[in-house]
Design a binder for these strands. Structure first.
Lengths: 345, 345
DNA sequence: ATTAGCACTCTAATTAAATGAGTGCTAACA
DNA sequence: TGTTAGCACTCATTTAATTAGAGTGCTAAT
């Protein structure tokens, strides 16, 4: 008996669905009564015993019903779960109410996701590495500082103060601006590599060191943010689920959300192994060890040209996978339209 | 017996200190043994009975010791507490490791505060209203957008995309930039009022509507952030205190930290009633109702010219007030030096 | 192969009893 | 008159014992 036969599958399905619903271990009698199999509880018991031996379900203790094991959940997610296909409209109205800044859009998205699912949600800004430079400007601030402003595709603006040895006259600044813009415009951040830089420096002549400083500073500014830009919402939803809310676990999880740094692991793992775009981590499968008692569902979204970001939901293993995945899928579509079509007004 | 005599004060002090230490209701016998009063427990009992009648302490139930009431804590904070006077150096090293951005400094501060006290910490950026405009620049982005960058004292940079009807030629932009800079440079944000604006518009001639748009957009950009810039850290510390960590309360409090919006009330109240700069809210005294089971200690810091921000600690009523206030005071001093002395490197 | 029936297991809920910290009061004392 | 010893009383907390019930596993009959 190495394969699951049809009847076992039906029973496993029933057990898991029931458990997702109630959160209580489910017994043979329940399945016998509330399924269309028309089998006695005794028969179910035998089958359950087999399912347990095969590792799909387990008993919290001898005289309790069964709950799904990680393997069981995995089977459910891979084979049993039905995909909903909701209309994509619903979310829209919530989403963007004339927010022009990307941060706000993302923060808003996280909130919607958290509210819709009642789990904790996270979302990262798309990596800037492949984003293209659209505009670049230096301005003399005072005697020893230059302000550099960079605008990327999607109107993402970064700025940085650059300390300088001495003030530059306005003509030099103007020249530098023209030089930088003509050479870098349209390049992606990751394309600005050593050879580009040295070529630029050459062209800059006596100001080559300034150019170097500027590029360094920009790289730094972009890098700084890259680490941080994870938006979260509904972290406190975790407290709603008793299996996660006992003081120790809750505290660890909530810290992970507060620090955000720990979520990076999740993001990277998701970006690395892109399957159909949605990843489900059940318990120990998660790359973040604090989350071994949770399930994590993540998806990548793409903004064309390979710029991608990550969205994710963290909740109890007993999670409404169907709803979560539906939500993520919907949001994914939304994100595409939001960023691709430049917004008017 | 309307006034506290000396002995009662000593007993009250002993009760509160003991309770802050242990978190357990304290009984007459404890005080009798561990104080220098040399009184029998019976005498203490009589005094405690009086103190209870006067509202300084209370019994969780008949056969328990006493714990301080809000009134008791208040008396302690106002009259009994000793002020520490720690050296100001200690914090420094943690604090700024070549972070140039204010956000990062503030975030770091919050973290230090939370780590030092083991409570939840918050900190707001100083209000921009009184900050002075240092530099202002418009740049044509594409056919229907202008990028406006504004730099304020303390190198705080804001930017905003402004939609326009048609593109402006570079000469016009140049003129506008000169106009804006000469007229606004050195003015504080709140000084840019209607009369300034109308004067500016007049000078701008045919481009007056653009000027209007620009100023509106800037005002909006500044306002947007003003609401949001509250940094927090250590919110999960709340879970360390049993009196706050039962699911209901913890969840409310943590949400308050997640939403941040709720903390605004605290900030405003603190800014409004500046006493010696440090405010203590005990239980119901707090302007935020979710925090009626906590104590909140806040302070304002000032950056000269009336720009002020707020720092705060939220923890259980049974809080180490001495340590908290000491920390806040120290940080306050730190903040002054950090922002006032322009950082080199 | 399926099922009815029954003994068995183990958790969770309920109740009862024991413990002990702490009070309030009274009467004696200095 | 203020202080203290002594004692009865209260009540939350702990421990133990009991019960109830859900669910299983096994066996024998269908």
């Amino acid at each position: 008996m190495t394969e699951l036969d049809d009847r076992k599958i039906k029973i496993l399905d029933a057990i898991i669905r029931n458990y997702l619903d109630t959160g209580e271990p489910v017994g043979s009698r329940t399945i016998s009564k509330y399924s269309d199999l028309n089998l006695s509880s005794a028969t179910i018991r035998n089958e359950m015993s087999d399912l347990e031996e095969m590792g799909y379900i387990l008993q919290p203790h001898t005289s309790a019903g069964r709950i799904p094991s990680d393997k069981g959940y995995r089977f459910y997610v891979d084979n049993l779960m039905k995909e909903k296909n909701r209309e994509v409209t619903e979310m829209k109205e919530f989403m963007i109410e004339h927010t022009t800044k990307m941060e706000q859009v993302l923060q808003q998205m996280a909130k919607v996701l958290a509210t819709n699912t009642n789990y904790a949600a996270m979302i990262t800004a798309p990596s800037y590495q492949r984003n293209k430079v659209k505009f670049l400007q230096l301005s003399q601030m005072d005697n020893d500082q230059i302000l550099a402003v960079i605008v990327m595709e999607g109107n993402i603006v970064k700025n940085k103060m650059i300390p300088t040895r001495e003030a530059l006259d306005s003509e030099t600044i103007l020249k530098l601006n023209i030089l930088l813009n003509t050479s870098l415009n349209g390049l992606s951040v990751e394309q600005i590599n050593l050879s580009t830089i040295s070529k630029l420096k050459e062209q800059a002549g006596i100001h080559s060191n300034i150019v170097g400083d500027v590029l360094d500073a920009l790289a730094e500014a972009i890098q700084e943010d890259e680490d941080l830009e994870i938006y979260t919402s509904g972290a406190t939803n975790i407290l709603k689920y008793p299996e996660l809310s006992d003081s120790g676990k809750a505290s660890e999880l909530l810290s992970a959300f507060e620090e955000k740094q720990q979520l990076v692991g999740l993001v990277n793992d998701t970006l690395a192994s892109e399957e159909n775009g949605i990843q489900v981590y059940i318990g120990d499968e998660s790359p973040v060890k604090n989350m071994k008692d949770c399930s994590v569902v993540t998806a990548t979204y793409e903004l064309g040209e390979g710029m991608q970001g990550t969205i994710g939901i963290i909740g109890p293993k007993r999670m409404d996978y169907e709803n979560v995945m539906d939500n993520l899928k919907t949001l994914k579509v939304q994100l595409d339209t939001v960023f691709k079509k430049p917004k008017k007004e």
